[in-house]
Write a protein that binds this DNA or RNA. Structure first.
Lengths: 193, 193
DNA sequence: CCAGTCGCTTTACATCCTGTATAGTGAGTC
DNA sequence: GACTCACTATACAGGATGTAAAGCGACTGG
């Protein structure tokens, strides 16, 4: 049949439209102006439709975050780094991470910000960041030669140094992700010894 | 006259009470529950009184931030570090900074978080953090021997590494400010060469 | 081709929070 | 002893989050 799945496609399209509208508003507007109604208007959809799809404003944020992890596409990073030396793997991971932080910076800023004020958003975010911790644990094990600190402390430091809040705190340097990556890489290497 | 200034004292007391109530609620409650009414109730004051004193919810946040910089008491830090060597000065500044981040961690988290979502809060916060930039500029100039990076990049890195978001991202390590300070100090030194 | 499903719309409503206005009270002031 | 003024009590407007109910209409499966 020629019309197979057209309904599902339409639903996915509205969902996409709502998420895109939310992304744009989050990135450009103040949190104060980020209302469900504003998102609905921009997506050319009714406010009720947003609630049908995401149940609540938080659900909408969760949707945006889920979409964000898809965009990150960090899954392949694990296989990409297998054939590299530890140092090269570190540089690549840091570079990719910085590029991602940079590309979604406007969106990540309010998202991470909200996590500091809303435990539910925080739990969603840390859950989606869990893979980063595992990734870095592997990396630290490979890199470590004579660490100046506890193994656990080194990992904590690496996680912090490669986190988005730190990247965003780099100020003007964060506008140049390649240059920022060099500095972050240096910091990571200084921790692993 | 024995009753001189009793009125002014009473006003200051209510103001203190409101700020204390706001501090406690910010540190313990979700942002969602941080309402002007909740603050007023905890301060045993009417909601209208809060508006009389602080004009708006943002004004209240500004008041909390102003109170916070008083508590920081970093003014003396500049004179304290004059007689020290560059390395010792760095260690002291980092240690004091980490201690402050730690002592007010619960309060700073939502405050910095909101700054990521609200430009007005952000401008207040960066304004109150300006002295940190100047302080660190001095320090970097004293420390720098053969920096692996641009002078400006080194400064950006030092500011980021000693910032609250980075400290908070240290996770469990942030529960031990002295130990965290050692790690942060190491990071700063690795940037200045 | 036709009856059924279901996402979307419209409308209405309850609830909560911010911010403002107003009149009154009572302690501190001169 | 009259005055000032911070605080209270109360009421109101505006806007945001969520929920409920009924109708429309395109896609679906037979």
């Amino acid at each position: 049949m020629s019309t197979a799945g057209r309904r599902a496609a339409a639903i996915a399209a509205t969902r996409r439209g709502i998420i895109d509208a939310a992304r744009e508003l989050l990135a450009t507007q103040q949190w104060q102006r980020f209302t469900v109604e504003a998102v609905a208007n921009r997506a050319e959809v009714t406010r009720v439709t947003v609630y049908n799809q995401f149940h609540s404003k938080r659900g909408l944020l969760d949707g945006v975050l889920a979409d964000l992890t898809d965009r990150a596409g960090m899954d392949q990073l694990l296989t990409d780094t297998q054939d590299l030396s530890a140092g090269e793997a570190c540089a690549l991971i840091v570079r990719r991470t910085c590029l991602f932080w940079h590309s979604e910076r406007q969106l990540l800023r309010p998202l991470f910000g909200l996590a500091g004020a809303d435990l539910e958003v925080a739990s969603i975010l840390t859950q989606r960041e869990e893979w980063r911790g595992n990734q870095l644990r592997h990396l630290v094990r490979r890199l470590t030669t004579e660490p100046p600190f506890d193994q656990a402390d080194v990992l904590a430091g690496v996680i912090a140094v490669t986190s988005f809040p730190t990247y965003d705190a780099l100020g003007p340097l964060a506008d140049d992700p390649a240059r920022a990556a060099l500095l972050v890489n240096h910091l990571v290497r200084s921790l692993t010894g």
